[in-house]
Design a protein around this nucleic acid. Structure first.
Lengths: 152, 152
DNA sequence: CGCACTTCTGACCTAAGTGGTCAGGAAAGT
DNA sequence: ACTTTCCTGACCACTTAGGTCAGAAGTGCG
């Protein structure tokens, strides 16, 4: 139920790429500096993003990374899945495949709801939203209640 | 972003206790059988639940476990926190404490929204809801859309 | 009291995941 | 040819996941 450093780094680097737009490729080093991420670790992450078709890259001088698709077509969910794997799996199996017995039969529905609620946030926010700072209504509403900002 | 076996087991065992109600303590062995959980692992989990004041226990013949509070006052969120720690932390720190720079400034709001959406599910469902099979409106609505049941 | 029963606790184990670093290879530009 | 930058795999320390094992300690009953 936690967000890994890798996922966090991946989204931040992608946001930086989204902001760069069509101004040519951005070097890994610049991304690392902009978001204060260990360079060599970041390059592994960018490679994963590339393998998942989220990012493209070119080597050599004038090389670097850029988004494979427009920033408003890339969701945070996609990026998280690329580096962390499927969202909200239980014991490494998708909730729809689990069978519960006895008094916990309804638990499957709960885990499904958990995944659905995560999706409503992560699949709604695109990189374009993120860099513009204007998050979709559902999301900013969720974050608007002061209660959401206190620990528990 | 995944649910551990421990959390799953903990909730299922607690559901079984909720169903048992006031019919005296339930042995670990019976819980393990009812939910098909490795006994010795389960006992460690029950101990954690006890330390968090969710469960009580007595040893010896006629001993066993029972809920420390009525089933409709124990939420799934509590149980998950007891065994997995805080929900939706990023790099092991709470989202409200993170500071982002540059183009990912809005990311903090996203993680806050993620946590808030998880809370709306996990803090809403009690053990009583779970064993009765009648989940709160918000939750069953989320699970009602067919889309929620397909992988991605 | 003595005994069976059950929880409690800590030590231990293997495998995998986290969060990296290091060294070198391979394309691209000049 | 040479520099630049990505690409790839190996490695590493530490923690977590998912357990097992052995034994200590409290509890009830005859």
């Amino acid at each position: 139920m936690r967000v890994s450093a890798k996922a966090d780094y991946a989204v931040r680097a992608a946001a930086e790429l989204a902001a760069a737009g069509d101004d040519g490729p951005v070097k890994g080093e610049r991304l690392a500096e902009a978001q204060d991420i260990p360079l060599q670790f970041l390059e592994h992450i960018l490679l994963e993003l590339k393998h998942h078709g989220i990012v493209r890259a070119r080597r050599g001088a004038k090389g670097g990374y850029w988004l494979a698709r427009p920033a408003d077509e890339v969701t945070i969910a996609e990026i998280v899945r690329a580096v962390e794997g499927p969202i909200a799996h239980v014991q490494s199996t998708p909730p729809e495949d689990i069978e519960y017995r006895g008094n916990s039969k309804a638990l499957q529905e709960v885990w499904i709801a958990v995944r659905a609620s995560l999706r409503t946030v992560l699949e709604e926010v695109t990189l374009a939203d993120l860099v513009s700072g204007e998050l979709p209504g559902v999301v900013s509403d969720l974050a608007a209640t002061p209660d959401a900002w206190v620990a528990r």
